[in-house]
Write a protein that binds this DNA or RNA. Structure first.
Lengths: 199, 199
DNA sequence: CCGTTGTTTACCGTAACCGACAAAAGTCGG
DNA sequence: CCGACTTTTGTCGGTTACGGTAAACAACGG
């Protein structure tokens, strides 16, 4: 039940509606944790059933009434209990790694373009993190505990993206060097046989 | 269907039984991708249904008969098709990050011990990667494409663990500096109220 | 009039996770 | 020698998580 706890964590900042939470999960923590609005609404119902959050209905004319969710004391305690448990180190689970593992059985050109796309992607994200860091923490230091958490988060994000970007570059270089060495020895059969999986 | 493709990728090396695959997912790719034997067996059935792999039954006296799975040409093609598609950059999804995001609403001591545990964990894994790297690639270079993939994999793993380990250290330092600053201002209510969630 | 923003909910499918069971042989303790 | 436990090889069922499509329904913009 990690998504539920993520939501509880978000609600410690301020009460929010499901819609706002969904947008939050599209920006700040969303960099680390993806969740679309359906998941969030479902999780909110569960949390409400458990008494961890409380929804205050705000009548709106025109739009459907919105539900502003607030953490209950039980919710706070539950979050603290959860946070007091040891975290489980996640695995990387990047498709790219599987491709690399079977590098000799697949086509290299698509991997190259993929690596280039990924390089760009991770560089963008890295820049984004650095930008936010410079704006929110120009001194590089945090004043209180809440800020410290966010500073650390951003730093981890930045480093992670940097690391992966560097890796992509290195992989591209290595592939170039390699394809210079054994040109034509691999599987160079073209892939476009018309049949594509829909999944 | 990423697990299925991971299995196909493993079977490019050599034909294997479900049991062997499960052990493989406990060591080499298992560093990046976790899957227990039940998941693997079910995925194997699916792959067989689709004609991507073929099981050859080997009668054993004593033990139950084992099924050695081999990639079919269709399986190879499917894998190549899959590998030719762009990969999706995964999100980090580490519980620790959620804890950090709500750092001012939780207890800091458990986080410290957690960070210390994680530091040790990631250092161990880092050493492990470096050990394997030194053993398999003492020159730091790969001879063929298959080796290149594995070399890159190991390097990414090593860097990742290093990065996270560094982060843990930094976080611990920052927490120490912070707790020196605002001692006693946070929530210092003890957590042991006896009630623990079972989940 | 059609598309987008705001807000929430419903249904359905797949993927992943987790715990138990089965069956037969090998190993260890008493 | 009997029982308990582990290894090897699988199967079954349940729950959580994830993802997509879409349906309400009003207002606002072009």
């Amino acid at each position: 039940m990690a998504l539920g706890d993520a939501i509880l964590a978000c609600l410690t900042e301020r009460p929010m509606t499901g819609y706002e939470l969904a947008k939050t999960f599209d920006s700040s923590i969303g960099f680390f944790w993806k969740a679309d609005h359906q998941q969030i609404y479902r999780e909110l119902s569960k949390l409400r059933d458990r008494g961890y959050i409380q929804g205050r209905e705000v009548v709106q004319t025109g739009k459907p009434n919105k539900l502003i969710y607030t953490l209950t004391p039980e919710g706070r305690t539950a979050l603290r209990h959860w946070a007091a448990r040891p975290s489980t180190p996640p695995s990387i689970k990047d498709d790219l790694l599987i491709r690399l593992h079977a590098l000799d059985s697949i086509d290299i050109e698509p991997i190259r373009t993929d690596l280039m796309d990924r390089l760009e992607h991770h560089r963008d994200r890295h820049e984004n993190y650095e930008r936010i860091l410079k704006k929110r923490f120009p001194e590089g230091t945090a004043s209180d505990v809440l800020d410290l958490g966010n500073l650390l988060l951003l730093r981890l994000g930045a480093r992670h993206e940097q690391m992966v970007a560097d890796f992509c570059e290195e992989a591209l270089d290595a592939l170039s060097a390699m394809s210079g060495k054994d040109k034509g020895t691999g599987t160079v059969v073209p892939l476009d046989d018309g049949k594509r999986e829909k999944g």
